[in-house]
Amino acid sequence: MSFISVNKLWKQYGDQVVLENLNLDVEQGEFCTLVGASGCGKSTFLKMLLGQETQTRGDLLLEGQTFPAEPDRNRGIVFQRYSVFPHLTVRQNVLMGLELEQRPLLGKLFGSARKEALEKVDDMLARVGLTPSANKWPHELSGGMQQRLAIAQSLIMRPRVLLLDEPFGALDPGIRKDMHELLLQLWQEIGITIFMVTHDLHEGFYLGTRLLVFDKVRNDPHDPNAYGATITYDLPIGQMDRSLLQDIDQSVTNTARHQAA
């Protein structure tokens, strides 16, 4: 039995078919990048993994169990924006998860328990390179720093799956490169299963172990919502050549044009 298995999964909003007949098996520790044109259901799929959305038909299983229908501490998330709490400093942001877990009622740690937790926090901050900014407010951080913080905040909970929804979409190219390195390094150290949605096909090719391309196989120009997207390419990264990248790029761009038309 694989870690996550997706079986004949469909997602519809009314008449609009977003995803059709999705089948996928993911092993623990894989780093999957999800690419595709906008409106092709990659974010919807991520939301289903997160528990923010539920499927219309089919199975979505984590170690054979149905995914809980609401977000929980086993699935961490980093959004493109607004992932950190503006009213807490960097350190408090990372500490939050530990406090929530250990104190269901107060949600705050004191004394030696707090000290112990803060050691973990500082260790995590060092890993993502935020030690110098530990006592700053999030609004004092750059976009890249905020994303580092969001990642640290999720990882300190040791979730089973880390979900990233276009986490670097709003960052400058140079910063994006640094973030890629950081993410790969953390993934290798911690060995967590990662799903990352990205707009950037080249980012998808570079990061991770597995590329999943979401695309529409069928297209009805008179009724663009009649058919949903599915996974058209499921490729191990590192075994791809340039022509394949161009093929995928072409196909995704075509779909994007159809969507826009």
């Binding site: 501490r73 961490g76 950190v84 709490f85 998860g97 406090e99 929530l100 009622l105």
Partner: peptide
């Protein structure tokens, strides 16, 4: 308050009470 925050705090294991006291109230 952004939905992202509400989702995020749930992925940090917050119960409904903690969502109120640690996310909504202070903000």
């Amino acid at each position: 308050l952004p939905t992202e925050q509400l989702i995020k705090i749930q992925t940090l294991g917050a119960n409904s009470w903690q969502v109120v006291t640690r996310m909504a109230l202070p903000q």
